[in-house]
Design a protein around this nucleic acid. Structure first.
Lengths: 346, 346
DNA sequence: CTGTTAGCGCTTTCAC
DNA sequence: GTGAAAGCGCTAACAG
């Protein structure tokens, strides 16, 4: 601690004791009124509320946290803050928390497993009441262990499949992918390539399943050469699509497993002098803001990202309230959004 | 509080008392070791450090906060979490904080003055040690009052000019705008329109100043009809540019005062069947990720957004340490990034 | 219904 | 150098 350190400013805010004195009651009563817990007579309540209002009192969160109550803070680990995919989830989370007068302690992990674990451990020890883990690195086993340890959290968009004790919120990847693929098939496409995320990730495997199901339903033989594994980032999409579109017998359509990959694919097409959708149709997944600002605007599968964030908060708060959570794995609907990057097969 | 509420999980983490017992010293000594404060003998220090390490001890933040120390939490108010402009600043902030083992409590204000004020007041009372206000709604006077009140904060990208006691971090808007305009002039453009942000905002006024300065330096008479006030959002850019480009004597170049406006302007051009940059050149401001994914890629003025975030943290922590901050108004450089949305005047 | 009373886990004088 | 002890502001039994 530096030598010149000021005394921590008190900001002159009233404490519960002062409010109690002013209202002529005990601190316990003020606490009861403020927290709507226990019985307080109409009169007393009103009197206390008046003083609270007049003095702009609100409980010191550290004190509340310490005394065994809640801190009112939720930790959220997330690989990164952007692209929009993450920001929109975060926005949904903060808004839902705000409505309950709670706040978010935001922790980007940069995909580092160690950082995520240590973050989680410190967060859960006195700083926050619980956590939301977006796309966590931990395995189901590690997370189960944490739950057994008394940690309270919800996994958002799990990377791998989670065992039952760990609550999860995600979107219907498989059906969304099936819709996207069916759309391309209806347009007459038969050589439909897929640029996937990393194998083994739930999002990848589920979307692959939907893609293959639609292909099968249309009687189209799946061609493994048309499926390229990538990384859910623009560069990956660019590389994969460049490869695909440079082939002698190139695909007439590409289903990119997220919007970032689709953006990369569009760049690839452009780089090769191919027009979208005239020469190649492209479909994405997510429907983030980027989908609407590129030319042509991207046809894509919408995930209700803000809603995913809100739902996660809802699950977590129920968990924190000690309620038994009925739906441990919530899956929200996805919708195909038709825009300008797909057209009838040439 | 719901009836079924669990006892708050302890997570089985050791307390300072346990560590003290294990190390055979008092809690005071452990505290000294952990906080590197006061004198502790080499020996004792080492012994304590060993126990701390072995048991993965770290201080409970609520307790630390309560007992007058720091909470290790910084509040950050920001209008929204996306577009990228905000996310990138936030990312810079969190990363800089992480390096000091501090965390961010993120609070979107949705541009609501009331929400921002109340957020700020509660944050500063026991939850956080200080705050970063990104593009705050408050006037310089209101903020000065808060500072007098003992609040510690730094304003990032001030909306209005701030009086001296309030520290600020921003980018060199005026010179960036001058560069952008000069670039267009060099390409032979003379009818250069400007789509601005709201009048009275520092970002708007400064960029306007740079724009006019470059025009004047080139001997081009400023035409007030070419300057349209807008809102820093895509829709605003679309509307303003549509108007500009529909005129009989339309501008050959548009300087949009941020990238969002520029994206809107590109959409407008496309909507009118005009090609960018052949028919109209467009320059943006910010250089967010969007600038690189649109077609053509956007020529724009880069603001070092992540660096702005990091610098703000640096200023704030110095403030919290009670050090006198030398540079109260930090202004970072901007750079013109040449891409494909500008070309020689037709 | 309301007040009294213990702490929560930590930092910080103040003695020794 | 180190320990004992006093709270920080609040919640939660437990009495009454």
């Amino acid at each position: 601690m530096p030598p010149t350190r000021d005394n921590p400013p008190t900001n002159g805010r009233p404490t519960i004791r002062e409010i109690a004195a002013l209202a002529g009651v005990s601190t316990a009563t003020v606490s009861r009124v403020v927290n709507r817990s226990g019985y307080v007579s109409q009169e007393t309540r009103r009197a206390v509320e008046r003083v609270v209002r007049e003095h702009g009192y609100s409980a010191n969160r550290s004190a509340r946290g310490l005394s065994g109550g809640r801190t009112g803070l939720i930790g959220v680990t997330v690989p990164r803050i952007y692209p929009a995919y993450f920001s929109v989830i975060i926005a949904g989370v903060t808004e839902a928390l705000y409505e309950q007068d709670m706040r978010i302690v935001l922790c980007p992990t940069l995909h580092e497993h160690d950082r995520e674990v240590s973050l989680l451990e410190r967060l859960m020890h006195g700083t926050t009441d619980g956590a939301l883990l977006v796309l966590p690195e931990e395995s189901s086993r590690e997370l189960s262990a944490l739950m057994d340890h008394g940690f309270r959290f919800v996994v958002v968009d799990p990377r791998k499949r989670m065992e039952s004790p760990v609550p999860t919120v995600s979107a219907a990847s498989s059906s969304g992918a099936a819709q996207a693929t069916a759309h391309l098939l209806e347009l007459g496409h038969r050589r439909i390539a897929a640029i996937t995320g990393p194998r083994g990730w739930l999002a990848t495997d589920e979307r692959l399943r939907g893609y293959q199901a639609s292909l099968a339903a249309a009687g189209v033989l799946p061609d493994p050469r048309l499926v390229i594994e990538s990384n859910f980032e623009i560069d990956g999409g660019l590389a994969a699509a460049t490869e695909l579109l440079s082939r002698a017998e190139r695909p007439t359509a590409i289903f990119a497993f997220n919007d970032q990959l689709a953006l990369g694919a569009m760049q690839a097409a452009r780089g090769l002098g191919l027009r979208v959708p005239d020469d190649v149709s492209i479909v994405g997944f997510d429907d983030t803001a980027e989908a609407q600002i590129v030319t042509p605007r991207l046809t894509t599968v919408r995930q209700p990202l803000a809603e995913i964030g809100r739902m996660s908060v809802s699950l977590l708060t129920r968990l924190l309230d000690g309620q038994r959570v009925e739906a441990l794995h919530v899956e929200l609907e996805t919708t195909l959004i038709l825009r300008d990057s797909t057209a009838v097969a040439g």
